[in-house]
Lab assay of single mutants.
Amino acid sequence: MVYKIRDKETGKVYEVTIDEETNEITVYDVKTGKPVKTVNMTIEELKEAGYEVEPV
């Protein structure tokens, strides 16, 4: 599923895909559409880390 996340401190917005089964999150560069990095976190962990998470 695709989400937009926003860093509450910097205001930067990222587009991510989240595999609900493995909790693998792939972060994409919004301008190029290319993957930047992959992390292993849940949506709740993202929120605790200071991100706003919205489904696209």
Score class of each variant (00 low, 15 high):
Thr26Ser: 04
Val53Tyr: 04
Lys4Thr: 09
Pro55Asn: 09
Val16Ala: 14
Thr26Ile: 09
Thr22Pro: 01
Val36Arg: 04
Leu46Met: 07
Ile25Met: 12
Thr22Gly: 06
Lys4His: 12
Lys8Tyr: 06
Glu21Tyr: 11
Asp29His: 04
Thr38Tyr: 10
Gly50Trp: 04
Gly11Val: 00
Lys31Asn: 13
Thr10His: 02
Glu24Tyr: 12
Thr10Asn: 06
Tyr51Val: 02
Lys34Asn: 10
Gly33Lys: 09
Lys37Phe: 15
Thr17Glu: 06
Tyr51Gly: 01
Lys37Glu: 06
Ile25Arg: 01
Lys47Leu: 14
Met41Lys: 05
Val30His: 13
Leu46Ala: 02
Leu46Glu: 00
Asn23Pro: 02
Thr22Glu: 05
Glu44Cys: 09
Val30Tyr: 12
Ala49Phe: 10
Ile18Thr: 04
Thr42Gln: 02
Arg6Leu: 08
Lys47Ser: 09
Val30Pro: 14
Val39Gly: 04
Val36Ala: 05
Glu45Asp: 12
Val27Ala: 05
Tyr3Phe: 12
Thr26Lys: 08
Val2Met: 13
Thr22Asp: 03
Glu54Val: 10
Lys31Cys: 15
Glu44Gly: 10
Ile25Tyr: 03
Lys12Phe: 10
Val16Thr: 01
Asn40Met: 13
Thr22Gln: 08
Met1Glu: 07
Thr10Phe: 02
Ile5Asn: 00
Glu48Phe: 09
Lys12Trp: 09
Glu15Cys: 15
Gly11Trp: 03
Glu54Phe: 14
Val27Thr: 03
Ile43Pro: 02
Glu20His: 11
Thr22Lys: 15
Lys37Val: 13
Asp29Pro: 01
Glu21Thr: 11
Tyr28Gln: 02
Thr17Val: 11
Val30Gly: 09
Thr26Phe: 07
Glu21Val: 12
Val16Cys: 14
Ala49Cys: 15
Glu52Tyr: 06
Val30Asp: 11
Thr38Pro: 03
Glu54Asp: 07
Glu45Asn: 07
Val36Asn: 03
Thr17Cys: 09
Lys34Ala: 10
Val2Gln: 12
Met1Cys: 14
Lys47Phe: 11
Thr10Gly: 03
Glu54Tyr: 13
Glu21Leu: 11
Thr42Phe: 02
Lys8Val: 08
Glu45Ile: 06
Val56Thr: 09
Arg6Tyr: 11
Glu45Thr: 06
Asp7Lys: 02
Thr42Asn: 07
Val56Ile: 12
